[in-house]
Amino acid sequence: MPVFHTKTIESILEPVAQQISHLVIMHEEGEVDGKAIPDLTAPVAAVQAAVSNLVRVGKETVQTTEDAIMRRDMPPAFIKVENACTKLVQAALMLKADPYSVQARDYLIDGSRGILSGTSDLLLTFDEAEVRKIIRVCKGILEYLTVAEVVESMEDLITYTKNLGPGMTKMAKMIDERQQELTHQEHRVMLVNSMNTVKELLPVLISGMTKMAKMIDERQQELTHQEHRVMLVNSMNTVKELLPVLISGLCVLFCGHG
């Protein structure tokens, strides 16, 4: 089971996670007991500079984003990363004075873990914002699908399909990119299957609407009010079948977030 739910996050955090895990095991097994840790001032300074830049850029993003959830979730991640960095700085200072300091060693482990946890939170916050962008597009499509209810002429239908097309293409592209990003095979399969169902049902919907519009356009007098209603209801049922399929597909996107 992969630890990180997207390939981007995995590629960024996996090397750090592995190194921290390796060092923690070495310390826990006492492999390094009694050995001096050298001066780490320079690499810690590099971390400090990187954290400082990251927080600055992140805060600028928080100020400009329209995503309220991102505005809420990002600052705690900054604090976590900054606190972790402070621990690393303290550890470096302590080691300069005492290369055998046990407390400094603990600070190094805590600080490294804190950086991993904080940056993970930060990347998750960003990823969730990306998912919300996809969901906004899908919701737009869902809303537009309900417009099918009022399409009764061929002219309306042409306009309807013309308007639906670009949104559908955009949604399909976003979902395809997303499924390629997911590390959990079962999530990927669910998302692909849901999207395929939508792709299969859409022509069925359009075909049903076409039939109905044609009949109305041809002014078939024998079409009773009752028959007209039945056709409309059938058409709407197809639309209604699409909704849960799409929604369940979108829920998959969040599975990796717990």
Partner: peptide, 28 residues
Amino acid sequence: IRVGWELLLTTIARTINEIETQILTRDA
């Protein structure tokens, strides 16, 4: 262990820089 801690801190700095680039790219 010297290599271990220095390597880890270097990786952490590089990772943070990479995240910063990601934020800038997505933001743009």
